[in-house]
Write a protein that binds this DNA or RNA. Structure first.
Length: 202
DNA sequence: CGACCGATCGTCT
DNA sequence: GACGATCGGTCGA
């Protein structure tokens, strides 16, 4: 049995958002509130490189009430509503005033699968439960009111249980749904676990 | 204050 | 492959 440890500032506040996005693969995202515990292993992520990234909400340093969260210290949650329907969960990284973030796009469910099925109104476990960022947030019970939450606390956090992936198990590609970002839409900022059923297709 | 649109998903053809 | 759902964020007037 490997030792389980919660990721902390020394993980989140590093300067390299691509490295963090890659290293988040294989880690376990846990939520516990309302007496319900759910967890899943992260199998797909995307990096958003802040002020210089046309796909990022913080491009050109745009600060608003919503994006302000990304300008805070690494190690907090950034959750926002997309298309008026889907809540998307991101991990803020880097130091204060550097608005980097990693979008969690897919999980492999571990604990509390019955709770996830209940939240998503599904009857059985299949790859649609936690594939895609909207589904991940729904299954984990994450909403916009969790935005700004500190990931070092007990409600929403990520742990390393010693699970390891080697380079050959990681696929790198361009991000999904960011065609409006022109040349930045081509950046290879998306990371997935090769062959995992919960990773989006393209 | 009004208009436009998005880091998506599920359903239909 | 195409499209509708659905609403807060953002920006311009």
């Amino acid at each position: 049995m490997s030792k389980i440890k919660k990721l902390d500032h020394s993980f989140y506040q590093r300067n390299d958002v691509l490295k963090i996005a890659k290293e988040l693969l294989g880690k376990i995202l846990i939520t516990q509130f309302d007496g319900q515990i759910t967890s899943g292993r992260i199998v797909e992520t995307e990096a958003y490189a802040g002020e210089t990234d046309k796909a990022s909400h913080a491009y050109k340093g745009r600060r608003t009430k919503r994006t302000e969260i990304m300008f805070g210290e690494g190690g907090t949650a950034y959750v926002y509503l997309c298309y008026g329907i889907h809540h998307l969960f991101n991990v803020v990284t880097n130091k204060k005033d550097i608005p980097h973030a990693v979008l969690i796009r897919a999980l492999e469910p571990l604990d509390g699968i019955d709770i996830m099925l209940d939240r998503t109104r599904k009857s059985k476990l299949d790859f649609t439960l936690t594939r895609g960022p909207g589904n991940v947030s729904k299954a984990m019970g994450l909403f916009t009111h969790h935005s700004g939450k500190n990931l070092l606390q007990e409600e929403v956090f990520i742990v390393d249980d010693g699970f390891k992936l080697n380079k050959k198990q990681i696929v790198i590609s361009k991000r999904i749904g960011v065609d409006y970002a022109e040349e930045d839409a081509l950046l290879l900022y998306r990371f997935g676990v090769k062959g995992n059923k919960f990773v989006s297709k393209p």
